[in-house]
Simulated scan of single mutants.
Amino acid sequence: MASDARDKEISVDDYVRYVDTGTIGKVLDIKTEDEIDWVLLDKTNLWYKSKLVEVLDEKDIKVKFTPTGREFDVEELKEKVAEMENMEMDSSVAEGGG
């Protein structure tokens, strides 16, 4: 039985978040090697140590899909917009030639 960072059981088809980067993905497979549990995520097709992911409730999943099929994180997009809104525009930054 694989368990996550909070000792919750992980099953195939669960959605998990990699705690270091926030990557969210669906668990495709689970394996144990040298007494370490690993989970394979669909988004990256990479194996992650089970103790470095956390199982998400359906209400916690923030991944949305666009009509083109590309996915994005709504919260990440909001943060980027806020960063752009907080940028200061200053007329002395660049000078025109002439």
Rank of each mutant, 00 (worst) to 15 (best):
M1V: 06
M1Y: 01
A2R: 01
R6S: 13
R6E: 14
D7I: 07
K8R: 15
E9N: 07
V12A: 10
D13T: 11
D13I: 10
D14W: 08
V16Q: 10
V16P: 03
V16Y: 04
V16G: 10
V16K: 08
R17F: 02
R17I: 15
Y18E: 14
D20P: 09
D20L: 15
D20Y: 12
T21E: 14
G22L: 08
T23G: 10
G25D: 12
G25N: 11
G25R: 07
K26Y: 06
V27K: 02
L28T: 08
L28H: 02
D29I: 03
D29L: 06
K31T: 09
K31H: 05
E33I: 07
E35S: 11
E35V: 05
D37E: 05
W38L: 15
V39N: 07
V39Q: 08
V39S: 03
L40Y: 08
D42K: 08
D42M: 03
D42F: 00
D42Y: 04
K43V: 13
T44Q: 05
N45P: 05
L46G: 00
L46K: 01
W47I: 02
K49I: 06
K49S: 02
K49Y: 06
S50D: 08
L52N: 02
V53I: 10
V53W: 05
E54P: 01
D57K: 07
E58W: 00
K59F: 07
D60L: 07
D60W: 04
D60I: 04
I61Q: 05
I61W: 02
F65H: 13
T66I: 03
T66F: 03
T68C: 12
T68E: 14
T68H: 07
T68P: 02
R70L: 01
R70E: 14
F72W: 14
D73G: 00
V74P: 00
E75R: 09
E76D: 09
E76R: 07
L77D: 09
K78V: 04
E79S: 09
V81N: 09
V81A: 11
V81L: 04
A82V: 02
M84P: 00
E85L: 15
E85M: 12
M87I: 11
M87N: 08
E88G: 00
E88F: 09
M89N: 15
D90E: 10
D90T: 06
S91H: 06
S92M: 00
V93Q: 14
V93H: 11
E95G: 07
G96K: 12
G96Q: 12
G97P: 05
G97S: 06
G97H: 06
G97N: 07
G98C: 12
